[in-house]
Structures are given as C-alpha cells and as structure tokens.
Design a protein around this nucleic acid. Structure first.
Lengths: 150, 150
DNA sequence: TCCTTGTATCGACGACTGTCGATACAAGAG
DNA sequence: CTCTTGTATCGACAGTCGTCGATACAAGGA
C-alpha cells in the first residue's frame, strides 16, 4: 500500500472512444488499466454485481459479507479497491455503510470495449487472409496459414 | 507459468447479461476475472488497441514491438496473456506472426458492464436515501448522511 | 549449408496482491 | 459511561505478476 496514493480515480481525463478506433495513449492506458485491475478479481466482480443488482441500486456491507467465504476485512479491502478505482461510491448512514455502483465508470469501460459501430458481422473467426500491409516489404505470402496454437 | 494450464478461454459458458440484472455466480465470476485480468495492464491495453485499430484488423508482432519501452520477450509475454484470455487470436504467416482481436470476447465484457437497459437517468450522483430494506431490523435512520470518504 | 531476422520460451528477481487475525474506530443501546 | 455491533485499518505472509537477459525455435536468403 506504499505505492502511490492517488486518491480516487474519476473519469475526467481519458477517452470514451472504442479502442478499435484509435490506439490508446500511455496516460489513458494507465488509468484504464487501474480500473480493469479493480475488476480483475472474482470476489470484486461478484461484489460489484451484488451491489448493482441490489434493491435500490445500493447495498449495505452487512448484505455483502454473507455470500462469500472470505473474512470481513477482506471484503472491506475489496470494497476499498472498487471505491478507489471509481467504480463504486460509498456513504455511511447511521450504523451501516452503503455502496452503490458508479454507472458512468462502467459505461466508460463498456464503451471502450465496444467492438465496432458498424454492426455488420463479426469480422474474426477466420481473419480473411487480407495481406494488409507486409511489414518489411511486399511479398506474396501464399504460404499456408498455420495456427500458432501454442 | 506452473499454475494451471487451462489452454485458452473461450466464451461458451458464462453469461452475457449485464451484472446490474443479477448477481454473478462463482464460476462466471472466476472466468470473467481472468479476462479482465488480461486487460488490467497498460501495455496489454495499448497492445490490444494497437491491434484493433490497425489496418485490416490485425497486426504483425513487428508492428507492436516498436511503440513500447519494454523488451521483445515482454511484448511476446503480454501477447500470450491476451491470447490465453481469448481476447486475441494469432497466426503465423511465413516469417511473421499476426494478431487480431476476438470481437465476441470484447462484446461479452462490454455487455456485462452495460449499466442498464433503461436509458432513463443515471441513478447515482446522490443515492436518493431510499432506506431500501434495513439490514438487521427496521429503524428510521434519519441521521444525516455523512460521506465515508476515506 | 550457414547466416540473418522474427518470435517464443526459460529462469530469475523484485514488486505487487489477496488473504488472514488482531485491533481500532464509529455509532447506537442500556 | 460501558457494552455491543458494524466497518475499516494494520502488519504479516504466501502466491502471483511484469520485466529482463539469455537462449531456442522458425523461416527465408545467400
């Protein structure tokens, strides 16, 4: 925890364009990676979905410690990670502390991962051996495409 | 690398429902966390955007090692992480190896993070002190909401 | 055949992360 | 005030991750 104490990520700087359109800059990539890192844990993912799907869009911590096998300090730690990534907000109300999701943060990540605007068809599945541009120099690569499976 | 050798994640099992609708199961959360973990690095995020925004939707590794400060083995390692998470595919064509994004994988994560179907208004920003359901027992919490900022 | 270039794997090392028990803080009840 | 309950912080520890140099493998050219 002695790394950097950037207080809380908020979505003011980086982009909302799908990454298919243009490559990410270093600064945007670093900030987005911090948000994805907060999502990169099964417990946090379930916590987030539990909060998001709860009545009223928010949940008390006492509703969140039950469904998990981990201890209460661990749940508290995960909630802090989600909060510091800007994915949830929190508020104490009397005895209990409530958490809710930040829809703008989720929407931003969702938009980033949107494959394309044109909903034509999935252009993968076989990359349709478009030679694109041969990296070094032009050479007709008519060799058999061989899966680099491992 | 001695952990588990699950070969490559493919999107056959888990859901495509936004997590706002229903809580994630343990199995789905674990698999989705593996995919988000692959996105949780600035270099991998930039690699993915570089591949996705490249001409023809695919890029040679030789196009990808240039824009980064890290070494070639590190780039190769990151590409492998992306491939084993099911986010990109790869193929050797003669001398060069090409990578492309898997749009279905990205679309699945994007759908999961979609805040809501109803595009009414953002229900956060002030959680609208709905008492929802008092956790332990009914008690009128009319105390002032105080931000649990840190 | 040997040489060169492109890419992947190996082994190592430092940094970070998830988890725990112990403990501290916050707020209400008696 | 003291007690109880809900939540957060503190250290510590094991496991994982990102990075590197060295090296191996793949493919084409001389």
């Amino acid at each position: 925890m002695s790394k950097q104490n950037l207080p809380v990520l908020d979505q003011t700087t980086a982009c909302c364009t799908p990454m298919v359109r243009e490559p990410l800059g270093e600064v945007d990539a670093a900030e987005l990676a911090r948000m994805f890192k907060a999502l990169a844990d099964p417990v946090r993912l379930r916590l987030l979905s539990l909060i998001a799907s709860h009545d009223g869009g928010e949940a008390c911590v006492c509703d969140l410690t039950g469904p998990f096998d981990v201890s209460q300090p661990t749940i508290s730690h995960h909630l802090r990670v989600l909060r510091e990534a800007g994915l949830v907000g929190s508020e104490r109300r009397g005895t209990w502390v409530y958490y809710w999701v930040m829809p703008t943060a989720l929407a931003r990540l969702s938009a980033l991962l949107t494959p394309a605007q044109t909903p034509a068809q999935t252009p993968a599945q076989t990359p349709a051996q478009t030679p694109a541009q041969t990296p070094g120099q032009a050479s007709a690569q008519t060799s058999v495409p061989e899966k680099a499976s491992r």
